[in-house]
Design a protein around this nucleic acid. Structure first.
Lengths: 340, 340
DNA sequence: GCGCATCGTCGATGCGCATCGACAAATCGA
DNA sequence: TCGATTTGTCGATGCGCATCGACGATGCGC
C-alpha cells in the first residue's frame, strides 16, 4: 500500500506538503497541488485510517447503537440504518455498529478505544439504561427518541404528540364523533418506549378539545385477533367509525380485517394509518396517512452529530428536535354526515 | 485518556511489558501480570484503536456491505446484520457498514484506507458488480450468496436447491400430485438473485423425480392480488392443493388469502412456508415450515472471515458452504388421500 | 528602497501501540 | 558442574500521518 511518503517522493515534495494538500490547512501553490494530486492518482493513494486517527485524534467514524427488537417492526429499523449510513458518508463519516448484546458497556468500549468520534443511539426508551452512560462519555451523542431525563442531551424524534393530535383533528374536522385507536402491541407499550405515551397524549388532548370520544384497542399480530378487537371496539362505537393505526405493522392487518368484516374504507369507515406513501398508494383504496418521516429523522440525527463534531463550539448544551409528521389525505377517510 | 505508558508507570514496568500482557505474545510472570492488570483496571485503560491498527496493521474491524432493497423483505436483512455484528464481537471484531450508495468503490475505499481487515458481502447476485472488485482486493471476503463466477471466492448461503427439493419431496411423500409454487415477486426474480433460480431447480428436480406437477404463480403484495393468483392456480390444480411459499413476505398473504377463500390449512389444503418457528407456531393453524436458518448463515459467515483473518494459512482457495434448511412438520400439511 | 506581512514549503516531532533484539536470571540436561 | 536453553523484562524503533516552527521568497505600503 502506498503511503503519503511515496506520494511525496513521486511528486518531488515533502511528506508534510502532501498532508497539507489533503487537509487544505495551509496554502499550497496551484502547481504543487497538481503535482501531488497527480502522484496520488497515479499511486491510487489512500490515507491510512489508523495513522490518521492516531495523529489527528479523530477516527471519522460514528458509532450507531442499534436496538434489539424481535417483535418491533424490523423493516423500519433497517431503513433508519441505511439512511444514517448513507448520510454519514456524505460528510465523510463511516458507521460502526454497536449491538445491544454488549449492553451499555459497548458504548464505553468504542469510545474508550477511540474507535468513534460520536454516537447515535436508536430507539431510546424513557428510562433507557444507556442514557446515564452516555452522559459520562467524552464524545457527543445524538439520541433518536426522548428519554425522561433529557437534560444535557441532544435528542431527535418524530413528533408523536403532534401526530396524535393531527389524526384526531383531521377526523374531528370531517365530523367523526368517536375514534378507535388501534394501538401498539402490549409488549411495546409496556416497554417504556415513550413515543407511545406521547402519541396518546396528542390524541387525548385533541379529543378533549374537539369533544371526540377515544376508544382504544391494543394491536394484534394476526388478522383473526385484529378482527376480534375491531368487532369489540365497534360495539362501543356509534355512527361511522374512524380508525387510527399509528404502528406500521398494524396497518395491513387493520385494512385487511376491516375488509373482511365487509367495511369499505372511505365509505363505511374512515382510516388513518402510519405508513409510507409508496405503500399507501398501492392499496386498493389509497390510504390517508400520517407519516412520521423516519428518513428525515435519520438525516437530522446525522446532521446534528456531524455539526457537533465539526464545530464543537456550536454544540448546544441540550436540544430536542421534533420532526413534524405529514398528513396526506387520500381515499380512506370520509365525512360521516354526507353518508347518512 | 490513559495510555499504555500510564499503565506501565503505575505498575512499575515498561510499556512493552504492558503490551505483552495484553497480547500474551511473550511469557509474563504471574506477579507482573497481576500488577499490570490492576493498573489497567485502576486507570480504566482501553487501548487506542488507531494506534493499535497502525502498529499491528490490523484494525479488528470487518466491513459489512449491506444491500439496498426497497422491496425486499427488510426485516430479515436486519436480522442478518444484528447476528453478524453480535457474532463478530465474540471474536473481538467490530462491524463497519458499507451501503450500496457508494457503489463498489466503497469497498475499495474501506480496504484502501485499511479501515477493515476483511469484508462480508450480503445479498450477492449472480452477476454482482462487487464481485470483480472483491477479487482484486488484498483482504479476505466472504460472500453471502452465490455469484455465477465464484472461482477463488468464499461463499456461504442457505441451500435453496435443497430447500426446494425438501418441500416437494415432503408434499409428494404425503401423496400430493401437484404443487403450487407461490414465487418471489417478479422484481426480485428478474434481479438475478440466483437463489430464486436455485430454489426452482430443487423444486423441478424433485418434482420430476416424484412425478409431481408444478404450477407457478408469482408473489403479490396485496391480499387481493394473492387471492386472484391463487384462484387462478387452483383452476389448474386437481385434488387437494399443496402450496409452497418460499419468500417470507408471501407467507402472511398466502395464509390469509387461502383463509379468505374458505380453505382450511391442513384440511382442505397443504401449505409449506419459509418463516421462523416463532411465527409459524403462533398462527391459528401452526404452519409446516422450511426454514433457511439465516442466523446460522450469518454466524458461519462471520466464522469464515474470522478464520481467514486469524489463520491466513488455513484460508481455502475457494469455498462454498450451503446451510441445510430445516423442515418442521406442523398442522398445515395433510395427506390428501385420507381426505378423499 | 526598506521593513513587514503573507505565501509556500520543509524538517522534525509525536500520536500510542506492537514488536524485535538484547540481556539477566532461572532452569535444565548431561 | 557448565553450557544450553527457557523465562521474564526492558529499551529502542517504527507504523503513517498531522502539525508546529522555521525559513526563503514574494508582495505590499510608504
Amino acid at each position: 500500500m502506498p503511503t503519503s511518503k511515496d506520494v511525496a517522493r513521486l511528486a518531488g515534495v515533502s511528506q508534510s506538503t502532501v498532508s497539507y494538500v489533503m487537509s487544505g490547512r495551509r496554502p499550497i501553490s496551484e502547481e504543487t497541488r497538481k503535482r501531488v494530486e497527480d502522484a496520488m492518482a497515479q499511486l491510487a493513494f489512500q490515507p491510512n485510517a489508523g495513522a490518521r486517527a492516531l495523529a489527528s485524534r479523530r477516527s471519522q467514524v460514528i458509532g450507531l447503537a442499534i436496538p434489539f427488537v424481535p417483535d418491533l417492526h424490523m423493516g423500519s429499523i433497517m431503513e433508519f440504518i441505511s439512511v444514517i449510513a448513507a448520510t454519514a458518508r456524505q460528510s465523510d463519516y463511516d458507521i460502526l455498529l454497536i449491538t445491544d448484546d454488549e449492553g451499555p458497556e459497548g458504548l464505553e468500549r468504542v469510545v474508550g478505544q477511540q474507535l468513534v468520534d460520536g454516537l447515535i443511539i436508536m430507539q431510546v426508551a424513557g428510562d433507557d439504561a444507556r442514557v446515564p452512560v452516555i452522559r459520562k462519555l467524552p464524545v457527543p451523542s445524538v439520541l433518536i427518541g426522548v428519554p425522561e431525563k433529557r437534560a444535557g442531551l441532544e435528542c431527535i424524534d418524530a413528533d408523536f404528540e403532534l401526530a396524535g393530535t393531527m389524526c384526531v383533528e383531521e377526523l374531528a374536522r370531517l365530523g367523526h364523533e368517536n375514534v378507535i385507536l388501534v394501538d401498539w402491541q402490549d409488549t411495546v407499550v409496556t416497554r417504556h418506549v415513550n413515543y407511545v405515551k406521547r402519541f396518546h397524549r396528542g390524541v387525548d388532548k385533541a379529543a378533549a378539545a374537539a369533544g371526540v370520544k377515544v376508544i382504544r384497542t391494543p394491536g394484534r399480530v394476526t388478522i383473526a385477533g385484529m378482527e376480534k378487537a375491531i368487532t369489540k371496539a365497534l360495539k362501543e362505537n356509534t355512527g361511522i367509525p374512524a380508525f387510527i393505526a399509528p404502528e406500521g405493522a398494524n396497518q395491513d392487518l387493520l385494512v385487511e380485517a376491516l375488509t373482511n368484516l365487509g367495511l369499505v374504507l372511505g365509505k363505511d369507515v374512515s382510516v388513518v394509518v402510519n405508513c409510507p406513501d409508496r405503500l399507501a398508494e398501492r392499496q386498493r383504496i389509497p390510504l390517508t396517512t400520517i407519516w412520521m418521516e423516519p428518513d428525515e429523522v435519520s438525516r437530522r440525527a446525522v446532521r446534528m452529530i456531524v455539526r457537533d463534531l465539526t464545530d464543537p463550539q456550536s454544540r448546544p448544551h441540550e436540544d430536542l428536535e421534533l420532526i413534524k409528521p405529514v398528513l396526506k389525505r387520500r381515499k380512506s377517510t370520509i365525512r360521516p354526515r354526507s353518508q347518512r
